Amino acid sequence: MHDVRQSGQDLAARLAETYTGVIYDVMRDAGREVRTLPSTLRPLRPDARLAGPVFTVEGAIDESLEVHRTMLEWTGLLQEAPGGHVLVCQPNDSTIAHMGELSAETLQLRGVRGYVVDGGCRDTDMVRELGFPVWRRYDTPADIRGRWAPTALGEPIRIGEVTVTTGDYLLADQDGVVLIPGEDVAEVVAAAEAAMQQENLVRAAIRDGTPPREAYLRHGKF
């Protein structure tokens, strides 16, 4: 019997061996819609790379909540986050951190691949040391206690002009974050792998002294 979970893990591993530029190119060249998240989302570590299926989170500021309640809601979210996935969060907020060291360590130990948030992070030095991949918009010491709580898990969210859906696949690197519909990921990854092989031929030709125009005409890639 075909193991769907194993297939997803294999696709995530193969996707991680590509890069956002080539994914963008092959989707554009195939006439597909290419969804890239805003360039304001940056990795904590410049060398970080993140790939896998998406699980979405949405939340909102609610200062009527007691501290205890916000912490119960947040730890419940950490508990519900599915292993093998990338959490993508729309916090609808620009004032506090929506990730920190204890949360990052919890998610990492539970097998979550990484976290992308259209919001803030704190404890950044410690999160970097953990090696847990985080893309965020800003850093701040302010936390969620008594101020913020998740409102929906697994539902479509909007980040910038882009809709992000649970089941999408995501690839993030220093250049940015690109999304692939789950039903298209196998085809897109295969096309990216083929494109990277063509790029290797062009690279070898350039290093051998081939003029760039000739290299492009010979291999149809540059």
Rank of each mutant, 00 (worst) to 15 (best):
G114P: 04
G114E: 09
Y115Q: 05
Y115T: 05
V116L: 01
V117L: 00
V117R: 00
D118R: 00
D118I: 00
G119D: 11
G119E: 14
G119R: 12
G120R: 07
G120I: 11
C121V: 15
R122I: 01
R122E: 07
R122S: 11
D125M: 01
M126S: 14
V127Q: 03
L130E: 09
G131R: 05
F132W: 03
F132I: 07
V134M: 00
V134S: 02
V134G: 00
W135Q: 06
W135Y: 07
R136I: 00
R136G: 03
R136N: 10
R137T: 02
R137C: 00
D139L: 11
D139A: 14
D139I: 12
D139V: 14
D139F: 08
D139E: 15
P141R: 06
P141F: 10
P141H: 03
P141V: 07
A142P: 00
D143N: 13
D143P: 00
D143E: 01
I144G: 08
R145W: 09
R145K: 13
A149D: 09
P150D: 14
T151P: 10
T151E: 11
T151S: 15
A152I: 09
G154F: 09
E155Q: 11
P156N: 12
I157L: 09
I157D: 03
I159Q: 01
I159L: 12
I159M: 02
E161G: 13
T163Q: 14
V164M: 13
T165V: 15
T165P: 03
T165E: 15
G167D: 08
G167V: 11
G167R: 09
G167L: 09
G167Q: 08
G167F: 06
D168K: 03
D168A: 01
D168F: 02
D168T: 04
Y169E: 12
Y169P: 05
Y169L: 10
Y169G: 08
L170C: 08
L170M: 10
L170H: 11
L170E: 10
L171C: 06
L171I: 05
D173G: 07
Q174G: 14
Q174H: 12
Q174V: 15
Q174Y: 12
Q174T: 13
Q174M: 07
D175M: 10
D175G: 13
D175I: 01
D175Q: 13
G176C: 15
G176Y: 13
G176N: 14
V177N: 07
V177Y: 06
V178H: 08
I180Y: 01
P181C: 02
G182K: 06
G182A: 04
E183R: 14
E183V: 12
D184V: 02
V185P: 05
V185F: 04
E187Q: 07
V188N: 03
V188T: 04
V188R: 01
V189T: 07
V189I: 12
V189H: 04
A192S: 14
E193I: 13
A194Q: 14
A194L: 09
A195G: 01
M196K: 14
M196E: 13
M196L: 15
M196T: 11
Q197R: 15
